[in-house]
Write a protein that binds this DNA or RNA. Structure first.
Lengths: 332, 332
DNA sequence: TCTAATTTGTGCGTATGTATG
DNA sequence: GCATACATACGCACAAATTAG
């Protein structure tokens, strides 16, 4: 068992590398309370470092109460409570309102000694590549939201495998990584199924879907639901001038389209439920009080953050399907 | 391998020649991420230049994020992207929806070769201190949103003075720094003045103000306005069970209170304008379509981001008062 | 534990050329 | 022509971190 690893070519000081590798060995259970450490001279010889360098490392561990020394005998593990300060790289797609709940829930459920740095790839593969390649080796864990980016497997595989966690969209290529992901197809299908009676009152169901940013699962869930219920449906990138059309229900993904829809409704003097139906994607505070409340199908961002935090801290390798909820209100 | 070339007879400054030749070496693949550079003294001796000249070159590369240094060890390549000309540290208070417009406008108006890293201090002075002290010397510019944090002058003064820009709240202690700031007192006073006729229809005006997070200027502007118009007013930390009260206008700062207010209104069967008045602080997409639109007084976050970008790129040392708008709708 | 060598980081003083008004 | 500011360059001294012997 090689407890200590030293690379003299990197910028991390040698004594710190010794500390780090011993901490790691304790964390992995290779060193237990009461175990004797290799002597100063053994490490010195084996790794070609100065005796003082090893001593510096041991002194740091001693002042932190993790090891103790017995004169004439050696150094022994006195506590397995290493509490090493961990750093997490959190790579989001973009900064938007929905990140707030997720990020705050993640931080709230992490230990205080864990530091989180946020980066954004803005759906740009080059930016993604650069962020990963420049930070590989600098963090304890890497939490990555790939969004709709494909062909990022090469980048991610630069990182030590058991340090990676995937968030939100879990593509097939990333299927081997632990993840807290959203099953969009199921979320939409199940959400819509819960209000299928209401939806059957409309003679058409329209999805406003911009394929650039949104996960394809939403599209599939929408189509599957309509086929299963024999509902006639349409898919469109944007709201057209004719929208909202009487007798039609709408599933609207972006809030800008939501606004546009409601304005159009007011112009035409349409009433929700009576004339048109409206479902919005992803919950936000204010949707509860728009008109008589807008029905939303939404990722539970708070639970996503909580589960992610637990997963990272326990170094669990599961793939957890995160919840989605439908908030049924008087809009459909 | 000769990484550095200096010709003292040409007009290009020596330190720039060092920068150029190192960039060239990275482009040619002679220097890779993690490689150690020759030490200051080695280059000094070999090329017969001053140690300060080499230091100047290394400092430029450091603020661009291309190399980093470790005291007692040396300089190391941290990024092979030599196209990056500047790196900016952007220190926000917290991640929330309002940062979206600001951040995107900032990025859109910056040159492509400028990199921006985001940090959050979460209103915690210790976190603030740590972020500053860990990153001093590593960035070309530092954009800081102090929020309501006081006693951060010592931290900020660790940074070279002409590299600092202050955002949003400009306290007296930070008065000497360039800034894009909000004059909250004026924003509120002027905003309210524009609808004073409407406000005079109510017999009381209430501000829901939580002193922990919100800038005091809002409070002052509110009080000044009411005194100038002889309007009776109240200030409260939370909405009480009696709220909303008939005949009273409300200025509500947080969206959670906004929701609470509207729910209370519906329970009591109150109508906006007829029974109560409502003004919300800071614009967001959906407020336009809540009931018949909610009047908002709002910082113009987009313009804030634009002005900030111009300011940083021109290294302008002004203090710019950013606009605020009142969006008059049918809620008061 | 002590000494020594090497490294970066910082501050101060000085000198020179160049651009600006 | 003169005064001023700024960028460039050099030299020296000392502090703090790293590593060796």
């Amino acid at each position: 068992m090689n407890l200590v690893k030293i690379n003299k070519n990197i910028s991390v000081p040698k004594y710190k590398q010794i500390v780090n590798s011993l901490e790691h060995a304790i964390l992995k259970g290779h060193l237990k309370k009461g175990n004797q450490l290799p002597s100063l001279n053994v490490i010195k010889k084996k790794h070609n470092v100065s005796r003082d360098t090893v001593l510096m490392a041991f002194n740091e561990l001693k002042t932190r109460g993790i090891i103790h020394s017995v004169v004439g005998k050696g150094y022994y593990i006195s506590s397995e409570d290493v509490a090493i300060s961990q750093k997490i790289l959190l790579l989001f797609d973009e900064l938007n309102a929905f990140k707030e709940d997720l990020y705050n829930a993640f931080l709230d459920n992490l230990d205080d000694n864990i530091k989180v740095d946020i980066y954004f790839h803005h759906f740009n593969p080059k930016v993604f590549h650069q962020i990963i390649s420049e930070n590989v080796g600098n963090y304890t864990f890497y939490v990555i939201m790939p969004a709709n980016l494909k062909d990022i497997n090469d980048d991610i595989s630069l990182i030590q495998k058991d340090k990676v966690f995937i968030l939100d969209q879990l593509h097939k290529q990333l299927n081997t990584y632990p993840a807290v992901y959203q099953n969009f197809e199921k979320d939409v299908f199940n959400g819509l199924s819960k209000i299928k009676d209401k939806l059957l009152n409309y003679n058409n169901f329209k999805l406003i879907f911009s394929s650039k940013k949104q996960p394809k699962g939403i599209l599939n869930g929408f189509i599957n639901f309509n086929k299963s219920q024999n509902i006639s449906y349409q898919i469109s990138e944007e709201l057209s001038k004719e929208d909202p059309e009487k007798g039609t229900a709408y599933l609207v993904l972006e809030d800008t389209h939501l606004i546009q829809f409601i304005k159009g409704m007011k112009e035409k003097n349409f009433k929700l439920i009576n004339d048109v139906g409206l479902i919005s994607y992803n919950e936000s505070l204010l949707k509860e009080v728009i008109i008589d409340g807008i029905t939303t199908i939404s990722t539970d961002f708070k639970s996503m953050g909580e589960q992610l935090a637990n997963m990272v801290m326990n170094q669990s390798q599961e793939q957890i399907e995160n919840e989605s909820r439908i908030n049924i209100r008087k809009s459909v």
